[in-house]
């Protein structure tokens, strides 16, 4: 029976990836001509025709699509139209740079967002709660690039403490990581707070107090594990936001990562590279959501056991 579960989940994942490939293909192919985007407006007709022929762009869109799909299924993600390099290589080369801001950024989101949310819920309607929630709203509503520019203004332009862009030293990491982290932390703080407030109102928490269980123990062993379920859902969804955040952050700080690669590739309609990035992101998302589903079963025995006493009502 477990097999059935993995089988359906696998099929659904494949369908998702196919959808990603198709939508990217259609959008990129219909929105502009890579030949003109790469060779420039003043390229000769001859060069453009040659470019189209060599990349198969002179075929009908259906033929191109089927060919592309075939290649992807065979594991060949194609070459970059810009420099003829393998798309996978081009992406993998940029991966470490992106991970070096994404992972610390994500960790920052978790270590700031979750405790802030819990604290806020436990000290509901105090100055601390208001402080956390106000700053969360500010981070939440401010567009990512504005926040990034603000950081640059304060720490690079005015205080000269940190570089405003580029990569190389640890100091270069600080502002991009802060940008990546705070946006998600704000979302997470809000969701954690409402999840914890919800659990605090459940009868079994009062019952635990009445049994004489100390407050600290109630919070750690009764409130937090119960609130984890909705929070984990949000974390799974936030991974998508992380990619969007990387695109913005890397552009603002001229960070040589996948986000910037994506921007330049889309601008030149370099399909193979865009597809490779999106497939990678898609796979990561599918895996992340699969982990979230597994986490549900781990966190909540009611889901693990299905509907134990479904036949309670006559």
């Amino acid at each position: 029976m477990m097999l059935e579960f993995f089988f359906t989940r696998g099929l659904r994942a494949l369908a998702t990836l196919l959808l990603i490939v198709t939508i990217t293909f259609v959008v990129l192919r219909l929105s502009g001509d890579p030949a003109i985007n790469i060779l420039g407006l003043d390229a000769s007709d001859e060069a453009i025709r040659e470019f189209r022929r060599s990349w198969g762009l002179d075929q009908s869109i259906w033929v191109q699509y089927v060919r592309y799909l075939q290649a992807v299924i065979e594991g060949n993600l194609g070459r970059s139209m810009l420099d003829g390099r393998s798309a996978v290589d081009a992406v993998i080369e940029r991966l470490p740079a992106t991970l070096s801001i994404m992972v610390p950024g994500f960790v920052l989101q978790l270590v700031v967002g979750i405790p802030a949310g819990i604290l806020s819920a436990l000290r509901r309607n105090t100055w601390l709660d208001r402080l956390v929630m106000t700053s969360s709203v500010v981070c939440f509503t401010m567009p990512g690039f504005v926040f990034a520019l603000l950081l640059v203004m304060v720490f690079a332009v005015t205080l000269h403490w940190l570089p405003s862009g580029g990569a190389g030293t640890l100091a270069h990491l600080v502002l991009p990581v802060l940008t990546m982290g705070f946006f998600g932390a704000a979302t997470l703080a809000r969701f954690t707070r409402s999840a914890v407030v919800d659990v605090l109102g459940q009868p079994h928490i009062r019952a635990a107090t009445l049994r004489g269980i100390p407050r600290r123990r109630i919070v750690l062993l009764h409130v937090v594990p119960n609130a984890a379920l909705p929070v984990v859902t949000i974390i799974g969804l936030m991974l998508g936001g992380l990619v969007a955040g990387a695109v913005i952050t890397e552009s603002v700080f001229s960070w040589p990562g996948i986000g910037r690669l994506l921007v330049t590739s889309v601008a030149s309609r370099d399909l193979a590279v865009v597809q490779t990035i999106l497939l990678m992101v898609g796979t990561a998302m599918v895996l992340a959501n699969f982990c979230v589903d597994l986490a549900y079963g781990f966190l909540d025995p009611r889901l693990r056991h299905g509907q134990g006493n479904s036949a309670n009502k006559g």
């Binding site: 009868p203 079994h204 009062r206 019952a207 635990a208 009445l210 004489g212 009764h222 909540d300």
Partner: peptide, 23 residues
């Protein structure tokens, strides 16, 4: 806190929801 549960115990309405579902 030392009185609760040890000297004076109280069971609340609806036992099922008064128990923690995940333990």
């Amino acid at each position: 806190a030392a009185y609760r549960g040890r000297r004076l115990a109280m069971i609340v309405q609806d036992a099922t929801s008064s128990l923690n579902p995940i333990h």
